[in-house]
C-alpha cells in the first residue's frame, strides 16, 4: 500500500465570515499525480498554501508524511513551486546555482555546505532541467521559462517525496509549457515523486495527471480525467462544446 504523503481532513478556511474553502478532505500517496482545477477564486492556491502551513486553517487538519503540520520538520521531503515569487528585482544578487542550492535543507534550513554526492546531484538536476549552462547567470536575468526551470530544480534537488506546484506554467509559452509538463511527468513515472499540480491548463493536466480534482471552494469532483469528462461537472465548467474543444487541442475525445 503506497504511503500517505499528504492528508487533508475536513479542512475549513475562512477570512472573517467569508468561506474560502470548506470541508476539504483528500489524500495524496506515493506515486500519485493529482491535478487540481477550478474557476478563478475557487480556492486552489489557498488550498496548496494551507497544505504547507502558509495559510492558517480555521478548522480541520493537514498531515504531511503522517505528521501534523505544526510538528512537521522534514521539509527536505517536500518540494514547492509557488505561483509567483516575491523577488522582482532583476539585480537580485543570486545566481541560478545559488538558488538551486537553497533546496538542500537540514533541520536548520538551507545547508551552508553540501557534500560531494550532493554536488554531483546538483549537477545532474541542472543538466536534467537544461540550465547547466546558466548556472552562473543571475536569476533575475533569465526568461520566465528558464526561471521556472531553476525553481523546479530548487524544488527537486532535495529529492522530495511530494512536489506541490501552484500554476507553474502561467507565464510560459505553449512549447515551454509542454516541456515543463513532460519533465514533471518523467519525475512522477521514473522516481515515483508524488505530484500535486494546480492549474487553469485543464487540457494539459488532463493528459498528464492520474487523478483529477475539480475544486470550487469544496471538492466537487475527485476521480480520473476520463470520469471527469463524462461527468456533469465538466459541462458546467467548460460549457456544452467542451468535448469539441478537447478534440481540437489533442485530437482525441475524452
Amino acid at each position: 500500500m503506497p504511503m500517505i504523503l499528504l492528508q487533508a481532513e475536513e479542512l475549513h478556511i475562512a477570512y472573517g465570515s467569508t468561506d474560502i474553502l470548506r470541508d476539504i478532505s483528500f489524500q495524496v500517496r506515493t506515486g500519485d499525480y493529482l491535478g487540481i482545477v477550478g474557476p478563478n477564486g475557487s480556492g486552489k492556491s489557498t488550498l496548496i498554501r494551507a497544505m504547507l502551513g502558509l495559510v492558517p486553517a480555521t478548522s480541520g487538519a493537514v498531515r504531511l508524511l503522517g505528521q501534523p503540520l505544526a510538528q512537521f520538520s522534514d521539509w527536505q521531503k517536500i518540494g514547492y513551486l509557488p505561483q509567483r515569487l516575491s523577488f522582482a528585482n532583476p539585480h537580485f544578487p543570486a545566481t541560478v546555482e545559488e538558488i538551486v542550492r537553497l533546496g538542500f535543507i537540514d533541520k536548520h534550513g538551507p545547508k551552508r555546505r553540501i557534500d560531494a554526492s550532493e554536488a554531483r546531484h546538483l549537477e545532474e538536476i541542472l543538466t536534467r532541467m537544461g540550465i547547466i549552462d546558466l548556472r552562473q547567470q543571475l536569476i533575475g536575468h533569465l526568461s520566465g521559462g528558464q526561471q521556472q526551470r531553476a525553481l523546479l530544480a530548487r524544488a527537486l534537488v532535495g529529492r522530495p517525496a511530494l512536489l506541490l506546484l501552484d500554476e507553474p506554467t502561467t507565464a510560459l509559452d505553449p512549447e515551454t509549457r509542454e516541456d515543463f509538463y513532460a519533465i514533471v511527468k518523467e519525475l512522477n513515472r521514473e522516481l515515483g515523486t508524488a505530484i500535486v499540480l494546480i492549474t487553469h491548463d485543464t487540457w494539459n493536466i488532463g493528459q498528464y495527471a492520474k487523478r483529477f480534482v475539480y475544486l470550487d471552494k469544496t471538492v466537487i469532483f475527485d476521480g480520473t480525467f476520463a470520469e471527469f469528462c463524462a461527468s456533469a461537472e465538466m459541462t458546467s465548467f467548460f460549457g456544452e462544446h467542451s468535448n469539441k474543444t478537447i478534440y481540437h487541442h489533442h485530437g482525441e475525445h475524452c
Binding site: 504547507l52 502551513g53 517536500i78 516575491s86 523577488f87
Partner: peptide
Amino acid sequence: FAVAFDEDLARTSGI
C-alpha cells in the same frame, strides 16, 4: 538570503 528571495519558499524550507 532565502527569506529575502521568497518568504514562502523560505518557510517551506524549514526557516
